[in-house]
Design a protein around this nucleic acid. Structure first.
Lengths: 153, 153
DNA sequence: ATTTCTGCAAACGATTTGCACAGGG
DNA sequence: CCCTGTGCAAATCGTTTGCAGAAAT
């Protein structure tokens, strides 16, 4: 995982008078050795492989801290459970397109959308702090060829 | 409430072989006599004033039907509970800006955003079905004058 | 020694569901 | 009559929390 991120987390924890523990280390390690989105449950599973003593409670207690500290982004896909996105630090402005056919999530950035969002906010008398754009869409390839290759972009 | 909406709901219900009941009538009435967003619990409270016999279960059973039928939109503000938006039929493309200072929700439409979202989707090889844009923002007026008038736009 | 952390299991809160009865067609 | 709709209360499920012991500083 990126050492800058690790340092940022430790600094944040230290700043809050929080201690370093094997459980938290394992959770942090697990949280940033993937670029995929995950749920709390999935993170527990990943952290558990690194350190057997990690419990569900500690995962749930650590996740909000990572979000607070700005290294992890909480996502709301309209499902019952939340998702967490470790790619947020590298691509802070990225958005999500979810394929309604295969549930694949495509991340994308667009400077024009960003600018437009800022303009609209300003016009309404606000300064944006968080902008969430989620597009649900059907796969054109599936429509044309009857098969969704689930290809990486 | 709008009679076209009412008719659309009854047609949809009839089409599904569903019956008309005082409880559902009360829920529908309550759902469209406001232009505000509400939670299932709040809708129960409103429907309850119209017809005392409406129960929580029936509200929860009716809400998805109204969403399915396209007259109500389910919103995800990242809170624990869902919100429902009765303004969706009149302004299908509208988006939400949430004030982080006073929690007020401002609805807005923007043709440029719409077009841009379609273009991006196409470029990625998809056809958008649902586009959700949510902006969280701080109030400029509050910043300048130290007070947020919570004014209507 | 002092304070934060931990796992466990119980609690939580919004939503869903099984059931037996009520009521629309 | 038949079949759908209902309220109630219990169940569900992701997440949170109280607690007593464990570990970090």
């Amino acid at each position: 995982m990126d050492e800058g991120v690790r340092q940022r987390i430790y600094d944040y924890f230290a700043h809050k008078g929080m201690r370093r523990t094997v459980q938290r280390d394992a959770i942090i390690e697990a949280a940033f050795t993937t670029t995929e989105h995950y749920t709390a449950e999935e993170l527990l599973e990943m952290a558990h492989k690194i350190e057997r003593s990690v419990s569900r409670a500690t995962v749930y207690r650590t996740l909000p801290l990572l979000v607070e500290c700005g290294v992890l982004k909480e996502l709301d896909f309209g499902k019952d459970h939340k998702f967490y996105d470790p790619n947020y630090i590298e691509h802070p402005g990225h958005n999500h397109l979810i394929c309604t056919d295969c549930s694949r999530v495509v991340e994308f950035e667009d400077r024009n959308i960003d600018t437009l969002e800022d303009c609209i906010s300003k016009r309404l008398g606000f300064t944006p702090t968080t902008k969430i754009l989620r597009i649900e869409a059907s796969c054109d390839e599936l429509l044309r060829q009857g098969t969704c290759a689930n290809r990486k972009v």
